[in-house]
Design a protein around this nucleic acid. Sequence first.
DNA 1: ATTGAAATCCACTTGTA
DNA 2: TACAAGTGGATTTCAAT
Lengths: 155, 155
Amino acid sequence: MRMDELDAAIVRQLQDDARQTNRELARRLGIAPSTCLERVRSLRERRVILGYHAQISSAALNRGVEAFLSVRIRPKSRTVIDSFKAAVIDLPEVVAVYVVAGDEDFVVHVAVQDLDHLHAFLTDQLAKRREVVSFRSQIIYQSTEKQVREVLAAP
Amino acid sequence: MRMDELDAAIVRQLQDDARQTNRELARRLGIAPSTCLERVRSLRERRVILGYHAQISSAALNRGVEAFLSVRIRPKSRTVIDSFKAAVIDLPEVVAVYVVAGDEDFVVHVAVQDLDHLHAFLTDQLAKRREVVSFRSQIIYQSTEKQVREVLAAP
DNA sequence: ATTGAAATCCACTTGTA
DNA sequence: TACAAGTGGATTTCAAT
């Protein structure tokens, strides 16, 4: 289950470009294509690589406005938490749901076409729920995402 | 630049699995492989598809603890905003940086090995910066991400 | 585990409508 | 714009180390 330097390099490469050919990947790492293929297969089986996803322009999907909504709910019982999470993730405006510790209980990442739709979502979908005590909005002006590199364990 | 139903279907498929072969993709959509290839190429050229990325298990990368840090800075000048953003994105603990409107100015998504490292990051890296007025932490217990589907424009 | 070689499969181009 | 067929190249398997 442990990752060596080669696994880490493969992971870095595939995070950067998941569609590069196996040959190209092998060449960059200085190993044989068959070895590379076996490594990648193992990483998938060990659930180090969880999947391969195309990154899509939000604007092209007609979702020009994104926001984080930090939501406080009550009561904080498992059933209420689970049902809120399940209901919210199914809404088409929602991109991601995070259960968090802090002032609020959830962070909901939404992506909508414009500010009107954001407002409509807040009032018609979120505020209407009885378990929602309060929420806070953070409209996203810019976002920068990075590759996640392995943290080396102490030797 | 406009997307039709076929483009939307391709985008959905590649969000789900970016490594499926062009033939497989074509078969699912009921079109010829050459047609499919041309469509995908066009989507890349039009910057609808921005890239292809492997999704990696945080735990496998030795980053078992994730958090959102909402940060207030001062002054809110462009130079300070830009330099804070540039400095923070380069820190290895940081996964993503969002410039936001709301109570705070930034949301910083971090992924670290454990709570000790989170605390060290907050005190040694974040709180030390002179432009940081205050911040708020939300530790992520669970996260659920979704596919983003196209919002259809009104006909 | 890693490899080279063989066999299968696919990407990409071209030609046609 | 869509398709079918062809070719060069890639993926994948496997025997050997």
